[in-house]
Design a protein around this nucleic acid. Structure first.
Lengths: 157, 157
DNA sequence: CGCCATAAATGTATGCTTGCAATTGTTGTG
DNA sequence: CACAACAATTGCAAGCATACATTTATGGCG
C-alpha cells in the first residue's frame, strides 16, 4: 500500500511535468510575439482582447502599473499601431483604449498558434487517451478554480 | 456520434483551460521572485540551477543574449549576491558563473512554492481523481515529448 | 459660478536590457 | 617568440519600464 504522501507527491510531480510541457507550448506561442512587442505591451493587448476597450485608469489598475507608466506605454503601442485612443463624448476626460484590427490580429494569432500546438500534441493519441486527458484536464481546471486573469498577466498569457 | 474534429477541438480546449490553470500556478511562483530580480536575471538563475556552473559564452548562448549584455547582467546579480564569478586555473580566460547559496535558495524556493500550489489544488480531489490526473498528465507530457529548456526559459521557468 | 476631485498626460530621473564596436587578457599555433 | 583566434569586458548609445511630482483638462457639487 502506498502512503498518501507519496501518492500526492507523485501527483504533484506529474502535474509539474505536464505544466512544463504546457508552458513549452505557451512559450512557443509567446516567443514570436515578443519579437514584435515587449511583454508589458503584450499584457495590455491580451487584456484588451479579453475585456474589450478599457479606460486608462482601469487598464493601469488591472496590470498593476502607475498611470504615468501606462500613459507612455500606450504612447508606444499607439505609435506602433496596435491600439487606439478614443475619447467618449459622454465623459471627455476619460480615455478609452481599444485594439486596432492589427492588434486584434496579433493576439488572436498567438492564441490560435497555441491551440494548434496543443492539438498537434494530442493528435498522436488514441481517442481513449484523448478522452482521458480531456476529463483529467477539466477536472484539474475545476479544482484550480477560477485563475485570476491578473495572475496570468504576469506571464503575458 | 461526435465527429472527430469536434472531439479534438474539445480536447485542445480542455488542455488550453488546464494550461491557464497551470500557468496561474507558475505565475504565482514567479511573481514573488520578480519583485527581487528581473525576468532575464531569473532566467540566468534557473539555467544555472538546472545546468550547474556555466561559462559566460555558453550561458549567453543558452539564453540568447549577446556577451556584452550578459556581462553586465552578471555584474548586477553578482553585486546582488545571487551568483559568483570564478576563473578556472586551467583556462584563465574563461569565467565560470555559479549560484551562491542565496541564489540557489531563491530558485529552489520558487520551485517549491509552485509544487506546493499544485499539491494544494490536488488536495481537494479524491484518490481516484488524483490517479486519473496523474495518468493523464503523464500521458500528455509523454506526447509532448521533451520540452526544450530553451523554450521554457522564455517564460523564466 | 467657484472650488475641489478626478483622469490623464508631462517633466524629470533611475535602472535594466540590448546592440554594435573596440579593447584587454589569454590560449594556442606556426 | 610573434601572431592569430578566442573569451570576456568596456565604451558608447538607444529603447523601455518604472517612479514621484507636477500640470492640464474635465466633471461634479455646494
Amino acid at each position: 500500500m502506498i502512503p498518501d504522501e507519496d501518492f500526492d507527491a507523485r501527483a504533484a510531480d506529474a502535474a509539474l511535468t505536464a505544466s512544463r510541457a504546457l508552458m513549452g507550448v505557451v512559450a512557443r506561442s509567446v516567443a514570436g510575439v515578443l519579437e514584435i512587442v515587449t511583454l508589458p505591451q503584450f499584457r495590455v493587448l491580451v487584456l484588451l482582447d479579453t475585456s474589450g476597450p478599457l479606460r486608462m485608469g482601469v487598464l493601469g489598475e488591472a496590470i498593476g502599473v502607475l498611470p504615468s507608466t501606462l500613459s507612455r506605454a500606450i504612447d508606444r503601442i499607439v505609435e506602433a499601431g496596435w491600439v487606439r485612443r478614443t475619447t467618449r463624448p459622454a465623459s471627455r476626460r476619460e480615455v478609452l483604449i481599444e485594439l486596432t484590427p492589427a492588434g486584434q490580429n496579433l493576439v488572436t494569432h498567438a492564441l490560435e498558434q497555441r491551440r494548434d500546438n496543443i492539438a498537434e500534441i494530442l493528435s498522436v493519441l488514441s481517442p481513449d487517451q484523448k478522452s482521458a486527458i480531456v476529463s483529467a484536464f477539466e477536472l484539474f481546471a475545476g479544482a484550480a478554480g477560477e485563475t485570476s486573469s491578473k495572475e496570468l498577466l504576469i506571464l503575458g498569457i
